[in-house]
Every structure is written in structure tokens, then in C-alpha cells.
């Protein structure tokens, strides 16, 4: 799994790629969310478009990020979840918590609404 971060206007875009299958890598992702809050970057867009395999460990870390940001008054939104990842969000009802987007610009704009 790889993690890429980029600021677009005042939104931190975190792009994950590869497999999210558990283990120490997930701690790295949790840390990215914690650092975002420490640096007062409270609008975070998580791009999952290049994640080709993910299980409940990945969902757990996304929920953790949501909680970390929400407690600080921020928000985490999801971009480009593949069909299969979207299915996991539906099965677990996490779809009721997360706003998901397939268009980056619309996702970025949503933070200003």
C-alpha cells in the first residue's frame, strides 16, 4: 500500500493505492489522520481509486480517521471508491456516515457548502 498526500486549496487529499490488508501499514494511515488534525488540516478527502483490494481492516482505519477528524470539528469524505469497496460500505452501513464522490472537483467543493 502507498500513501500520497497533497493540498488542494484548503483540502488535504490523501490517496491510497494497492492492497489494504492489515498490519503495520494501517498505523501509518491512522498517523496521517492524526497529523492532519495536529496541523489543523480538518478537511480531508480520501481517494481510494487506486486501492485494488481492501477488507475490514481498511474500513476500520477509515472509521478511525472519521472519528479523529470529527472530534476536532473536521470532516472526512471519500473519493473514487471502486464498485467493490462501495459494496463494503453498503454491507457495513458505513455508507450512512460517509459522503462519497466520484468527481474530485465536486468533492472538493462539497467542503465549502
Amino acid at each position: 500500500m502507498n500513501i500520497k498526500q497533497e493540498m488542494k486549496d484548503d483540502v488535504l487529499v490523501i490517496s491510497l493505492s494497492g492492497k489494504i490488508i492489515g498490519g503495520p501499514e494501517l498505523i501509518e494511515v491512522k498517523d496521517v489522520f492524526k497529523k492532519a488534525v495536529e496541523q489543523d488540516r480538518l478537511k480531508v478527502l480520501l481517494d481510494l481509486g487506486k486501492v485494488n483490494w481492501m477488507d475490514s481492516s481498511g474500513l476500520g482505519v477509515i472509521v478511525s480517521g472519521h472519528t479523529t477528524l470529527s472530534r476536532a470539528g473536521g470532516a472526512l469524505r471519500i473519493l473514487n471508491a471502486t464498485k467493490k469497496i462501495h459494496e463494503l460500505f453498503i454491507i457495513t452501513k458505513l455508507i450512512t456516515i460517509f459522503e462519497t464522490y466520484t468527481d474530485e472537483q465536486k468533492a472538493l467543493n462539497s467542503f465549502g457548502e
Binding site: S56, G60, S64, K93, L94
Partner: peptide, 8 residues
């Protein structure tokens, strides 16, 4: 719903 584990 907001637990970080237990969905397997």
C-alpha cells in the same frame, strides 16, 4: 457503527 473493528 463507529467501532474500528468487528466487521469481518
Amino acid at each position: 457503527l463507529l467501532l474500528t473493528r468487528g466487521r469481518g
